[in-house]
Amino acid sequence: MAQENDVVLIYFEDQPMTFARIESIQADHKPDWYHVKLLLLQVPLQPVTWILRTAYIDGAEFTMNGNRMRMAPVVCPDDALPEIPEPEEDAPPDPGGKDGRVISFPGLKKP
């Protein structure tokens, strides 16, 4: 089941509509139903609370006012991050670099 702080993509009639972050999931008085508070990530930000079953929180299709809806978890793809090659131990020093020292930015402030 999706959890608090997860980001989901909300589909409306099989079309992606908006991203949302799950703010909270509170149990309803009916078994297997929950009050799901979502922050719709659009301009302006909009908080909404939907009453959903566990299956709907997990991505099953449901209807709202006769329209098909579903939520899909957003997962960062592995290829979204650039690969950083490991430095070779016998590699010559970087000609454009300065001997690999770390420079503190606060130390560069002019008085």
Rank of each mutant, 00 (worst) to 15 (best):
R21K: 13
P73H: 07
A60I: 00
P47S: 12
P31W: 05
R70C: 09
T54R: 11
C76D: 10
E83F: 06
V75K: 13
I51C: 08
N67S: 04
A55T: 10
C76Y: 06
R70S: 13
D78W: 07
L39I: 11
P16K: 03
Q15Y: 06
H35R: 12
P87T: 01
T49E: 15
Q15M: 10
T63I: 01
Q46Y: 09
I84V: 15
V74F: 15
V74K: 10
E89C: 06
Q15I: 06
E83W: 14
D90C: 12
L45N: 12
G66W: 03
P44S: 06
L40F: 13
R70V: 05
D94F: 04
I57N: 01
L41I: 04
P82L: 08
M69L: 07
C76A: 11
P85K: 10
V43Q: 08
Q15E: 11
T54G: 02
T63W: 00
D78E: 14
A27K: 09
M69I: 10
K37W: 05
V48R: 11
D94L: 05
E88A: 14
D79R: 09
E86A: 02
K37I: 06
G66Q: 11
V48L: 15
G59R: 01
L41D: 07
Y56E: 08
L40N: 09
A72W: 03
P31N: 04
W50K: 03
H29A: 12
R68N: 11
M71K: 00
A20D: 04
D32S: 12
A27W: 00
P31T: 05
E61I: 02
P44T: 10
V43I: 04
F62E: 02
A27E: 14
N65G: 07
Y56N: 01
M64F: 11
Y34D: 04
H35V: 07
R68I: 14
P44N: 12
M69C: 14
T18K: 03
L38Q: 07
D28P: 04
I84S: 07
T54S: 14
P16C: 06
L40W: 07
P92K: 12
Q15R: 14
V48C: 00
N67A: 08
A27T: 06
D78Y: 00
M17C: 04
A27F: 03
M17K: 13
W33E: 11
L52H: 01
